[in-house]
Design a binder for these strands. Structure first.
Lengths: 346, 346
DNA sequence: CGGACAAATGGAAGCGCTTGCGGGAGGAGA
DNA sequence: TCTCCTCCCGCAAGCGCTTCCATTTGTCCG
């Protein structure tokens, strides 16, 4: 145990450890601790004058309730767990910031749980370290299977999903199909006919690619689909694969900006110019996308985090917001897309 | 209040809804709660076999101690606070991941506190102290002034610093001077004589720039120093300023990779080629630096987070590791640096 | 003006855990 | 073999707060 640092209780501006307990306040106000408690926590059935007297006493004593005691007795923890696959990634970091802000404002603390790989996920759900420690769990764009959902239920806590959707829980996210359409439609409008796809497993945006092409009367060519690992390196690899085709695409839609940036690197190394030789578009509006002059479909990530926070608060208030909110996405035109080399046919 | 999920105590493999308490564990292990407590918290004077039995019972019941009760009764909280200025930034995210892993392994929880602006900092220091919520605080490359240090001290929590150094606390970081030298020396060796600097306020790496130039017999020209806001946009602005000089530099050393990437964008927009017309080097080895083919000085960020976690554990064990560890940095050669256009003079 | 009710308050039982204290057992020394 | 000392372990007392329940006081209406 770390002994409290001694000495220097002087007027240095450092507050002395607040020692006043609820009993002290009650005594000073001439009421029972029970009443004092009720008065301070805005319960009904407390006379206005009594409440005032208690408040005054509390203020005079610099009283601050001990959260530990309060929560032990009251059942709540005042904490929320965030399950995040990869905190260092911009998308999750941004989500976290939004969430944190909202929770902080409500005086809730945020516990960070990294659940990246399958084994970490398994470990989390096996040990359920969040047990007893939080009032709610926010799942950030992480997959949760049915067994794990049951496990979550056994925690008896509220669950909220951000950056995606998950069957029975309230969630915030974007409409991946719409986002995908915005991207691919843009390429189509520019006149591209041979549009490649850099997708990750299980990607709703891939469906949009297919649909957009179909609508434009173009038969989706599976040869143009490269399934890649998430992240820039994956994008680089995938692009290389597409370049190896006999008829490479004239434009590529990447699942996200990092993937797109990887693709751009491969193109550069191959001596190809973007967008003259090949157009590239991503999704996210990652800050570095602006630096790389990447056309993209922007999504409001921070806002998703904030909304998730609000959903948590609602859930904690006993509401059961049965929503699956979808936030709007927006095409951001930059310098990585242009009509295909030969000019738009037609 | 969320009622504990009812029903389904069947053999479905789902943990029973009612959370196991210490009493449950004790009963199952056939000991008293007191002994169970001691066994679980590694107290001496508990027979090894008893301890094992208790551990087993705890595991079987999925027992997780209530931090509230534990703390209220005088024990630890099992929680560590991380103060991070900007979680969405790669550097901090990476630090966090390292830290989280180490703490998780020790069964400690990580509370995330964003302390970007001064008012958030103030808020944190005003609130945390109310009652101890954590056993330790990890400061991630955030400034902490003297008054705040006093506040921390009065709380009696352990303090560890990562990604920087701070007077009285154990810390992990890199040697900014060495890192700066690695970068600038590289440019000098390539033959550059007019080397610009994109620096942020209060930057030890700037000193390295000066020293490296001096060692090379080049008089540092303050005209070539642009102080910029952190982040890519800052770098872009700063680069623009340097390009406006009558004698622009032939190479630029940026405080970090994001700044460097911003500089590269400005150069591209100005129609200049990197590295043919101008070399750029950063610090960090941000994953996107690889994608942008940016030469940089790599620092082991994740490792810093991990070491910070280990320092926390040490501190919690009562040790007082009085270290200021410096991890090695390494020049990573990529395609954004080359000898100056005219060829290396000599 | 009395009875029925509602409002205001106090008493007391915990919430789940830690820890000082004391007792029982077993081993060592005489 | 007996005494003394360790070593383990159980008992019970809280930590500071919330809340159920009972009690008292005040209010409303017939």
């Amino acid at each position: 145990m770390l002994p409290p640092v001694t000495g220097d209780t002087g007027e240095t501006g450092v507050a002395p450890p607040s020692l006043a307990t609820l009993d002290d306040v009650a005594r000073r106000a001439g009421v029972s601790p029970a009443t004092a408690s009720r008065a301070l926590s805005d319960h009904p059935h407390v006379a206005a004058t009594t409440r005032a007297r208690v408040r005054e006493a509390a203020a005079a004593l610099d009283y601050v309730a001990s959260p530990e005691a309060s929560r032990l007795a009251g059942g709540r923890t005042g904490r929320v767990a965030a399950l995040v696959p990869h905190p260092a990634r911009w998308f999750f970091g941004e989500l976290l910031e939004g969430l944190e802000g909202e929770l902080r404002a409500a005086d809730l603390d945020l516990l960070l749980f990294r659940v990246g790989g399958p084994e970490e996920r398994a470990d989390f759900f096996r040990r359920l370290p969040a047990r007893r420690k939080v009032d709610a769990v926010v799942v950030l764009a992480a997959p949760v299977d049915v067994a794990e959902q049951a496990r979550l239920a056994s925690l008896g806590v509220a669950v909220v999903v951000a950056g995606g959707r998950l069957a029975p829980y309230p969630s915030v996210g974007i409409d991946d199909h719409v986002a995908g359409r915005q991207a691919v439609d843009h390429l189509v409008h520019l006149g591209h006919r041979r549009i490649g796809l850099l997708t990750t497993a299980d990607d709703a945006r891939a469906g949009a690619w297919r649909a957009a092409l179909a609508d434009a009367g173009i038969a989706p060519d599976d040869e143009l689909v490269a399934t890649v690992a998430p992240g820039g390196e994956g994008g680089a690899d995938g692009m290389a694969r597409l370049l190896g085709l006999r008829h490479p695409p004239t434009a590529v839609f990447a699942h996200d900006d990092e993937t797109a940036l990887g693709a751009v690197r491969t193109l550069r190394r191959a001596g190809l110019r973007v967008p003259e030789d090949l157009s590239v578009i991503g999704v996210d509006d990652h800050p570095l996308a602006a630096l790389a002059d990447l056309t993209t479909v922007a999504q409001p990530v921070r806002t998703q985090g904030r909304r998730a926070g609000q959903l948590v608060l609602a859930a904690l208030h006993g509401e059961h917001p049965d929503t699956a909110e979808l936030l709007p996405t927006r095409l951001v035109l930059r310098g990585s897309t242009s009509p295909p080399a030969g000019g738009a046919p037609r």
